[in-house]
Amino acid sequence: MTMLGNFDFDVIRRALPYLFLEGMRFTLTLTALAAFGGLVFGTLIALMRLSSYKVLGRIAGFYVDFIRSLPLVLVIFWFYFLVPYIGQWLTGASRPITVGAFASSLITFIAFEAAYFSEIMRAGIQSISKGQPAAASALGLTYAQSMRYVVLPQAFRNMLPVLLTQTIVLFQDTSLVYVLSIPDFLGAASKVAQRDGRLVEMYLFAALVYFVISCVASYGVRRLQARIAIVR
């Protein structure tokens, strides 16, 4: 009772502009860009895995297995500290190059999501019957055209609910950038909490916001899934 008795709603109210205009904006931007980049590269990796060139398939398979066996938070951390030195080595510069925390975390998330999205897109492409690319080929479409106009749009549509669910997981995972002290939504809440000494209020509120957004989004995905099922 004492905990709730001391509960200060006003500290949350005062922090709202900072939390949402700075923190949530960062979180949503990172989520959207990482999802988009992950989808693009994930689709390429999926095409490599399904390619008739065995070497490409093996490289893509290794990449996916490698990424999936690493803890995300460690990679975010290491990548941020290593990239300046890798960049220095690659460009031959005399000092470590500067890479912003945002760019570094975005690259890490795209690399991770590409691995996850590639598995989803691979399943999506395999769900299309062989007759579809055959019909596209018979009309004279090249492999690339057949993928672009016939197979991938259908694979994407079939997998849209799964892709969106993965994006919700990504939305939650972006909070891991706290290890780089980036003011994403959780980072912003954490800063206010430390500054004002109001840890209970801020962390409870942050949890509630993540919970509500994820719940609403999941509900939206289920509605969408039902609609797609009817159309098909």
Partner: peptide
């Protein structure tokens, strides 16, 4: 692709693009 574009083909299961 060029050769195939000159020959029409009709399949057992239609294979229209849904």
């Amino acid at each position: 692709p060029k050769l195939r574009s000159r020959v029409g083909m009709v399949f057992q299961h239609f294979e229209l693009f849904p």
